[in-house]
Nucleic acid binder design. Structure first.
Lengths: 217, 217
DNA sequence: GTCTATATTAGGATAGAC
DNA sequence: GTCTATCCTAATATAGAC
């Protein structure tokens, strides 16, 4: 995916970047199979041919978009876990950050999940994104960090034991699922957009307690 | 979607049904946009033209498949909630049933979620499926049932108050998300298929306790 | 680097024989 | 009711002018 060399006209910002941004929006709301090169071109304000000039094929463009999305997904959350040390503090912060982020990018979870279901080989891109991140902030891996923070509280007698993987999956499930399943939940709970916003607001306030209570001795 | 009248040759079972079964499998693993009529025909062992004979368009076929999937999704879970009365008993049973069901149909959550993200109008089919079910078993709606079971325990002082919608979303999140996100989790946790199976087995044993503990006073 | 015009293929849909 | 053959549009991709 080497970027073409040579100067850009770039009246209006870097073109390659504009295309990537547009592709990001389109792929995420339509899914990879449902996305149309024409729609991406329109959204980027350029001609279809330019997409091929920069990315050669739709498939490569899709890979680039997935890459970008995967690498930003866990960045902030990892920072918090790597930075803090007490779960009483890190869990609520992670939940806040997650739910804020997801409120702003509601299509992302659905995109990532269906993309991975249909192209399991993309999971590898995830692993690499996590490795990159670890190198960048010089942290050990997520599982180990969480494992240590759990161990600290278990030793202090303030938490029941739980494996780090179940801990992480529980946390991720409770934060991410409501956004991934938003249309389904709205239908089942009989609420509209405003109702969903209220639901999330309430959830922000109550979820950390729910989660931490579950692990009291 | 009226089924054509007249006799069938049906050497080998009802053809319309065979097509629907094949479509089900293909739509669920490829997504609606990614599914190909040819692949469905191959999988059903018939010619492409027959799909159009029975279902006219791909879009109608997709609707029929979604309908079918949506209506079976919550059937067994609703039965349990409608049947039992004490959350101490219904929650573990619902979790067991859910995780068993999802282990057997791993693509379903991803399919439903991405389908609803891309066609929010399908949410209506959900509402109807729920209504049908309520009529069939003569129960009141899920939210009310759960609300009552929560109220019973809160009054008895054995549970902290929680709204029925947050309760249901928490339960659904913890059960469904790990399957919807299976490829992502395998990648993040660094496990293979066997590892995932072990993870779920352990989860089956520990999740009910996690959930019920979260609501102790 | 960006466009217009065009090639090429894929895929949904129909006609008509049996 | 099922097939073969064909149509037609939509969508990816390329050629070539500017």
């Amino acid at each position: 995916m080497a970027k073409p060399s040579g100067e850009r006209h770039a009246r209006d910002g870097d073109t390659e970047q504009r295309i990537l941004d547009a592709a990001h929006r389109v792929f995420i709301r339509r899914g990879t199979a449902g996305a149309r090169m024409q729609e991406i071109a329109d959204e980027a304000g350029v001609n279809k041919a330019l997409l091929h000039y920069y990315f050669r094929t739709k498939s490569r463009l899709a890979t680039a978009v997935f890459q970008r999305t995967a690498s930003t997904l866990f960045a902030r959350v990892l920072e918090v876990f790597a930075g803090g040390s007490d779960l009483d503090e890190t869990v609520p912060r992670v939940m806040q950050i997650y739910m804020d982020q997801l409120s702003r990018t509601p299509y992302v979870p659905g995109y990532i999940l269906s993309e991975l279901n249909q192209h399991p080989e993309r999971a590898q891109q995830f692993v690499e994104a996590l490795h990159d991140f670890r190198r960048k902030i010089g942290a050990t891996d997520l599982l180990t960090i969480v494992q240590q923070q759990i161990q600290a509280r278990v030793s202090a007698g303030t938490m029941r034991p739980i494996t780090a993987d179940q801990f992480i999956v529980n946390l991720a499930s409770l934060c991410i699922f409501p956004f991934a399943a938003r249309p389904m939940l709205m239908s089942i709970l009989g609420i509209d957009d405003a109702g969903f916003a209220r639901f999330i607001k309430k959830r922000r306030a109550t979820l950390p307690q729910f989660f931490l209570h579950a692990l009291r001795p």
